[in-house]
Design a protein around this nucleic acid. Sequence first.
DNA 1: AAGCTAGCCAACCGCGCGGAT
DNA 2: TATCCGCGCGGTTGGCTAGCT
Length: 289
Amino acid sequence: MDVVLQSRSSNSMAAEPEEETELRRGPWTVDEDLTLINYIADHGEGRWNALARAAGLRRTGKSCRLRWLNYLRPDVKRGNFTADEQLLILDLHSRWGNRWSKIAQHLPGRTDNEIKNYWRTRVQKHAKQLNCDVGSATFKDAMRYLWMPRLVERIHAAAGDPTIGDTSCASGVRSMATTAATATTYPENNSAASAVTTSRSASSGSFTSELCGEEKNLHVHGSGEKTTSGGDWMQEADQEFWAMHMQIQPEDGGLFHVDHELSGWVQGFSDVGVSADNLWSLEDIWKMQ
DNA sequence: AAGCTAGCCAACCGCGCGGAT
DNA sequence: TATCCGCGCGGTTGGCTAGCT
């Protein structure tokens, strides 16, 4: 399955001018990758259509740009999302919705495509399991009161658990906690989340490439590349969710009724001065913990 | 062992925006 | 002002892989 080449059709041996108009599609070959990398190293990126032509790549500029940004760029971080990254994604998505590129700006090394895939494959799957829509109150409640606190819990546990081997991981989480608690401003919303990411990126690698406690949930692909198994913590949270809220009636459109335990959560938020408006703030979740 | 299914992810597509001409 | 072009964004698709039957 080396390459799927729609362009390599019967007339691929056509005259040169004809050939120039033929564009390759599908997976990139190693040669193409090297060509693109070398060209950008020499001439820089931008003007993608012209770049594609000048580099001799029979790809659209769009395709080149995508390949570079999502895969070849040296600072692209590969592998599974860390707990804090997941937390950040949940938080930022709750603010901005499907603004993937905007969200990606706050996760150094992560691409919008990667985040989008994460959301669609992992998060939406759980919405499905809860028999609700991602826009429903049920889903938002599960996210707000269970998934996000669960993630924070995990990060805290990793930070304070001496059995966690990776001390850099724990210290990284600790620094994140500190940063989150003392964070200053968000570009738009005056929230803590962006400060979390930005400051962490300064010392990136300290823990972002490892999963800390999440490591258990991983399996290894043939290439050695790690991928998350889908986040068992979410499954657990889902179960808790249903155990706690048996009165939910999914067929009524996912309307969620706050019960006593949830009221406790909400009370907890108000105790630390969190209003309904900023229930989503990462900083607030940390305070709650 | 073979077939099926679900999950994951790279890549493509359509659309809209903004700058240049 | 109108048109073109480059670019970025969000949504969608298709192929590969692992796990299950």
